[in-house]
Design a protein around this nucleic acid. Structure first.
Length: 429
RNA sequence: GGAGGGCUGGCUGAGCGGCCGAAAGCGACGGUCUUGAAAACCGUUGAUGCGGGACACCCCCGUAUCCAAGGGUUCGAAUCCCUUGCCCUCCGCCA
C-alpha cells in the first residue's frame, strides 16, 4: 500500500511512477478524490458520535419524564449515527480498493517500460565456448539430458505421480540440491542472517499483505477447504513473521534467511519452458529477507545483490545483472535486480536470482513498524533476494558439463558433496 | 473427534451495561538523592485515524476508533447473546 500522505501531498510523483510502469495514472486522481470523501464522511460520523456519547451520559443521570424524553432523542440520533458510520466505512473501503491497485512508487533510476526494457548493469564471467573446448561438432546437452545420464532428474515419473511440471531429484540430483541450499544457508549465516525454516501454508491476510493476491493471484495455489494458501516463496512467511509488530532497528537491519518449498501454479505459461525443471510447480529455495529503516534500504539492496553474486561465483556460473524496468516490478517492489545465468543449450540467459526493494509498501500493508530514536513509530522497509533454488541445478549442469556428459562440481560446492569432484554418467544415452 | 476453562495496554492482572482507553503491580523512561551506582522517593509512560492551532516534521488542543476477530441486542457494550480463531486442561483416536 502506498503512503496516503504521499498520495495527498505529492500525487504527481505517484502519477509519474504509474506512467513509468505503464499502469493507469488516473487511479491516483480517483484515490485523491476518494480520500477527501472518506475524510468528510469520517468527520460527519465523529461529530454525531460525540453528540451521541454526550446524550448517553445525560440519559444515565436523568429519571422519570425527562429520561423518557431524552431516550426518544437518543433513539433518533442512534439511527443517524448508524447511517453516518456506514457511509464512512463504505468510503474507506472504496478508497482502499483503489489505493490497493496503485503500485509502489518506482525509485529514481529505474528504467521505464515493460519486461524487455531492462538495463544490463554488468556481465560477469564469460560463457564457456564448448565448441572450442570439445570440437566444432560438439552439441551441448541440455540440463535434462545431462540430468538423466547422471540419474539426477526424473521428470517422467514426476509426471506419472503428480502431472506436468513435477519431477523427482534422485541420487546426485537430490544431493546437489541439498549441497547448493546448504551452501546458501551457510553464506547467509556468515553474513548475519538468522536461518529460518518457514511455514508454506499461510492465511489469506498474510498472502494479501505481501502483495501476491493482486494481478497475479492466479499464480497461487489455494486450499479451499481450509482457506489457506501455499506460498510461492518463503518471502511470504518471512514478511508475515513481524506483521503488526513494532521492531527495534536501532542496532541495524533484522535479517532472515528462509528455507522452504515453493509452489507456483504457472497458469498462463502454457508451452513455456516445458522441458526439464526450469519452470515447475514445486521447488526449494533459500531466500534472504531484511527489515530495515527507510534510510538503510538502498544500501541493504546492494548488500543482498552482492550476496547473490557471491553465491553465483561459488557455483562458478557466468551471469549478467539487470535492472528491471518499472512495468516488470510487481506491485510491491520499488526496484528489482535480477541475476541471470547463461544457458549454453539455449544460448540465452535464465533468471536465477531476484532481489527487490519494497521500501515501505509491503510493511505498511502488514503493519510492520519501527520505533525511532525519538520515540515515534513509522513503517519499515522490506527487501528480499534469492540465494539459491532448484533451478540453479539447470545452470550448474549445463555450464559444467564435460565432453563425456559428466559434470564437474564447482570447487565451492565440493565440501557439501563429500568432496565429490565430478558427477559421473551412470545411464549413458 | 468429545467435554470444560480462557483470550484486557511491553508483561502480570482488576474490571458493576453508562462515571472505562481501562485499577493496581512490574518493566521502561525522566528527575531528586549519591563521588558513581544500587536502594528509596517523585513524575511520565499504548496504538491509529481525522480536524484545528502560521498545519512539511516535532509539538499542543479537540475528536473518534481499538479490551482475540466478525456479527447481534441496547439510547448506550471490555461487560449480555451468536459465530469464528487461538491458547490451556481432561477424555478418545492416531502419528
Amino acid at each position: 500500500m502506498i503512503d496516503l500522505r504521499v498520495l495527498r501531498d505529492a500525487p504527481d510523483l505517484v502519477r509519474a511512477s504509474q506512467l513509468r510502469r505503464g499502469a493507469d495514472p488516473s487511479l491516483v486522481d480517483s484515490a485523491v478524490d476518494l480520500d477527501a470523501r472518506r475524510r468528510a464522511a469520517l468527520t460527519d460520523f465523529e461529530r454525531l458520535r460525540a453528540e451521541q456519547k454526550g446524550l448517553g451520559k445525560e440519559v444515565a443521570t436523568a429519571s422519570g419524564e425527562a429520561k423518557a424524553e431524552l431516550l426518544g432523542r437518543a433513539k433518533a440520533l442512534a439511527e443517524q449515527v448508524r447511517t453516518a458510520q456506514a457511509d464512512a466505512e463504505a468510503a474507506a473501503a472504496e478508497l482502499e480498493e483503489v489505493v490497493g491497485r496503485i503500485g509502489n512508487v518506482a525509485l529514481d533510476g529505474v528504467p521505464a517500460g515493460g519486461e524487455d526494457d531492462f538495463v544490463v548493469l554488468r556481465e560477469v564471467g564469460s560463457p564457456r565456448d564448448l565448441a572450442a573446448e570439445y570440437g566444432a561438432d560438439f552439441v551441448p546437452l541440455d540440463h535434462l539430458d545431462l540430468g538423466e545420464r547422471l540419474r539426477a532428474i526424473d521428470t517422467v515419473r514426476g509426471a506419472k505421480v503428480s502431472g506436468a511440471r513435477f519431477y523427482y531429484l534422485t541420487g546426485v540430483g537430490a544431493r546437489l540440491e541439498l549441497a547448493l541450499l546448504n551452501a546458501a544457508m551457510d553464506a547467509a549465516l556468515a553474513a548475519g542472517f538468522t536461518p529460518m525454516i518457514t511455514p508454506t501454508l499461510v492465511k489469506p491476510e498474510v498472502m494479501r499483505g505481501t502483495g501476491f493476491l493482486g494481478e497475479h493471484a492466479d499464480e497461487v495455489y489455494r486450499l479451499e477447504a481450509d482457506d489457506l494458501y501455499l506460498v510461492g516463496t518463503s518471502e511470504v512467511a518471512l514478511a508475515g513473521y513481524h506483521a503488526d509488530e513494532i521492531l527495534d532497528l536501532s542496532t541495524g537491519p533484522q535479517r532472515y534467511a528462509g528455507w522452504s518449498a515453493c509452489y507456483r501454479r504457472e497458469a498462463g505459461s502454457y508451452g513455456k519452458d516445458t522441458r526439464g525443471i526450469i519452470r515447475v510447480h514445486q521447488f526449494h529455495k533459500v531466500e534472504m529477507f531484511s527489515y530495515t529503516s527507510v534510510e538503510d534500504a538502498e544500501a541493504e539492496h546492494e548488500r543482498l545483490l552482492a550476496l547473490e553474486e557471491q553465491m553465483l561465483a561459488l557455483a562458478e556460473l557466468p551471469y549478467r545483472v539487470i535492472d528491471t524496468a518499472a512495468g516488470d516490478l510487481g506491485s510491491s517492489a520499488a526496484r528489482k535486480f535480477d541475476c541471470e545465468a547463461w544457458l549454453p543449450s539455449q544460448q540465452r540467459y535464465l533468471e536465477l536470482t531476484s532481489t527487490s526493494n519494497c521500501t515501505t509498501y509491503q510493511a505498511r500493508r502488514l503493519g510492520v513498524r519501527e520505533r525511532t530514536a525519538s520515540g515515534e513509530t513509522r513503517a519499515v522497509a522490506t527487501l528480499n533476494g534469492t540465494l539459491g533454488t532448484t533451478r540453479w541445478i539447470v545452470a550448474i549442469l549445463e555450464n559444467h558439463q564435460q565432453a563425456d556428459g559428466s559434470v564437474r562440481v564447482p570447487v565451492g560446492l565440493r565440501p557439501y558433496l563429500g568432496g565429490l569432484e565430478v558427477l559421473p554418467v551412470v545411464a549413458p544415452a
